[in-house]
Amino acid sequence: MVSHRRGFHVFYLCIILLLLVALYWNTQAKLKASRVGRIAKSGSIATQSIVADPLYDKIRVLCLVTYKYWYSDAARYVKRTWGRHCNVLLLVSGQSDLELEPYVPLVNTTDNWTLVREGLIYAFEYYQHEVDWFLKIEDWSFVAVENLRYMLQKFSSADPIYLGYELKYPGTNLPFNYWKSGYVLSREALRRYTMEAKKPDTKHCMKKQGFTEDLELGRCLMHVGVVTVDTRDEYGHETFIPIVTSELFIKGYEYIPWLRNMSWHFTDLHTVPISRRAITFHVSYPPKMFDLYYFMYRVRIFGTPLRNSMELLS
């Protein structure tokens, strides 16, 4: 009788042990699935950033990206790659989107200048206390946000300035920043622009559709006392790249006469000198953003020590 009871005890203990093992593996599987789910929501494993930016909380940047709603792929690539390095990513379009959740102006339009103008005003009114700087960039662009913060620490967002690749106004030879390379407005610069642009009778910050973004914005900013500043590095090399880099490397000034004639910092070199701390790049094919993201943040060269976040900025 005693031996039968011992047999039952052993049997029950085995059952309990099996249940505990099954419970353990089930818990581990759920934790793994939860982790994969979190990664899927924020982007693929291949695009997880390894950079811990020491300036992230000190130099707060809002990235404003406009896009045409009938082609939203480029904006999605931005959101899944470099856009996640911004303190605030604000997408602006003429139509709503469940994934991108853009700001859609009340004046529903596909006109670029209208989207930019309304987006800038919205960004200031809703985020002026959350960020210090406002980057306006095209969806066909890639931005090294850490390098942007590194450069911006030299300036104060309380000053009325805006930064980018400087061109010369035809006729006047006054500087303005090229729209395709992106430009950054200080909080004070955007405040002044917003106050003037919202005036119903303004003649300096026009609301008409079809205007050229950089010329019209530059004209308005000039009126309210906002100036451009030199964004070149200590070697005189450009940080905001005006055109696709392959065209600069292969063609240079010789085959891009408008760039040669309009560049504010024209040099005698064959082409625009690109800084090692370059900030913005215009891409010819939006999926290349994933390539740029991988090579910029994840590739390590054999024989060199693993670099920390500060060394990535040097």
Rank of each mutant, 00 (worst) to 15 (best):
E146S: 13
M262C: 02
L313I: 10
R35H: 09
Y150H: 14
E247L: 04
T212S: 03
S93Q: 04
F281Y: 13
S44Q: 06
N147I: 11
G119V: 07
Y193R: 02
Q95N: 12
A278F: 15
P257V: 03
Y235C: 07
G43C: 06
F176E: 05
I243W: 04
G210E: 06
I16F: 14
S284G: 12
A29D: 08
S156C: 11
R276S: 08
L248Y: 01
F266T: 06
A52L: 13
I15V: 15
N112Y: 06
L13N: 14
S141L: 03
A197P: 05
K68R: 10
H85P: 00
P273T: 06
T239P: 06
L221N: 09
Q128D: 07
R192I: 02
L106C: 08
I15C: 14
L90R: 03
P200L: 08
V92D: 03
F302P: 14
V36K: 14
N173L: 03
K208P: 00
R80A: 13
V224C: 09
C205W: 12
D139H: 08
D214P: 04
P242L: 01
M296L: 14
F11G: 04
S42A: 12
A278M: 13
L217N: 02
Y193H: 03
V2L: 08
H129E: 13
A189L: 09
R219V: 01
N261E: 15
L152H: 03
V21I: 15
I59S: 03
Q153F: 07
